[in-house]
Simulated assay, not measured.
Amino acid sequence: MADWLNEKAPIARKNAAEVVFEDLRGSILSGQVPVGSRLPSEEKLARTYGVSRPIIREAMRSLQTLGLTRSRSGSGSFVISTQQRSELAYGDISARDLDEARPHIEIPAAGWAALRRDAAQVRELLHLCDQMDAHVDSLKWVQMDSDFHTLIAAASQNALFARIVSESRDAMMQQSELVNLLAHRRVASNDEHRRIAQAIAAGSEADARAAMADHLDLVKKAIARITQA
């Protein structure tokens, strides 16, 4: 373990989470870091890779989602497998459950948002699209992605849709992190988000529903490719 970590060098800030994640995942899948090993602390990994602790935290969450590591309270993270599991989970919400539920909530929410949104919500949706286009920082992008979907649920003026999306935020952010790290969908997602926002701005229920359905379907397919890899 010590030799493995000593070989690492600080990495460039751009796409830092992706680089850290791929390096850690590769070390685990290759057996270089065997099952039962305790990974170094966030602080030590951050110092070794030359990145912030939130970047390390993002990479570690995705390793857990893939079933490669498990966090033990007060003890750290341990390698539990050198093979990715086929059934992913975001905390206590399975990937299957999230994929099945989102279309039944977010597609109608987008349609209602097109009919019920106010001018301030339209401005904020389009502003978030501009911000996501401009940001390369993965942590900030994931937060804005979450804000985007939460705002649409709020704009639907359906309290139940808004509550479910809000309560699912952590799982949706973990899904977004994983898809960004493994499927490289950020640019495509930006285009899909803008289509959704423009349909809502235009007041087109049908177009908003169709754009959200396309987006969620592509995310689901990306997750399926990750689990089959």
Rank of each mutant, 00 (worst) to 15 (best):
L218R: 15
Q198I: 09
D137I: 09
S156I: 08
D130F: 01
H149C: 02
R169I: 03
N190G: 12
A199C: 06
L218D: 15
L182V: 10
D133T: 04
K220I: 00
A206N: 02
I152H: 00
A199Y: 09
M172Y: 07
E167I: 07
R194Y: 05
L181H: 13
I164C: 04
A183L: 11
A211C: 09
R163S: 11
K140I: 10
I200M: 05
M132E: 04
E205M: 09
E177Y: 11
F161M: 09
S156Y: 00
A171R: 05
A159F: 01
L178N: 14
S176D: 07
D145V: 01
V136L: 10
V142K: 01
A153W: 08
L218H: 15
A134I: 02
I152N: 00
R194K: 13
A153Y: 06
K140N: 03
Q175L: 08
D217L: 11
S176L: 01
E205G: 01
L216H: 14
S176I: 01
A134R: 11
A201Q: 08
H215V: 10
D170Y: 10
D207Q: 14
I164W: 05
E192A: 15
D214I: 12
R169Y: 01
M173G: 08
A197H: 15
M212P: 03
V165C: 00
V219K: 10
G203L: 03
A210L: 07
H215Q: 14
H184C: 12
A224C: 01
L216G: 14
K140G: 02
L151K: 05
K220W: 08
A154P: 00
A210R: 11
R169F: 01
S138P: 04
V136C: 03
R209Y: 06
A222G: 09
A154I: 04
Q198T: 13
L151T: 04
V179Q: 07
H149W: 04
D137R: 09
L178W: 12
A211F: 11
R163I: 02
Q157K: 14
Q198V: 09
R185A: 14
K220A: 15
A155R: 00
D207C: 06
A155I: 10
R195T: 09
W141T: 04
M172A: 12
A154G: 03
R163C: 06
D217M: 05
H215T: 10
L182N: 10
S168E: 07
H135M: 09
L139D: 06
V187T: 13
I223Y: 12
H149N: 05
R185L: 04
S156D: 00
I164D: 01
I196E: 12
L218M: 14
K221G: 12
S189H: 05
A162C: 08
S176A: 15
D170N: 10
A162M: 04
R195L: 14
A210H: 03
H135I: 06
I200Q: 06
R194C: 07
S166G: 15
L151E: 02
Q131P: 04
I152F: 02
T150Y: 01
A199P: 05
L151Q: 04
D170I: 11
D214K: 13
Q175S: 07
A201F: 08
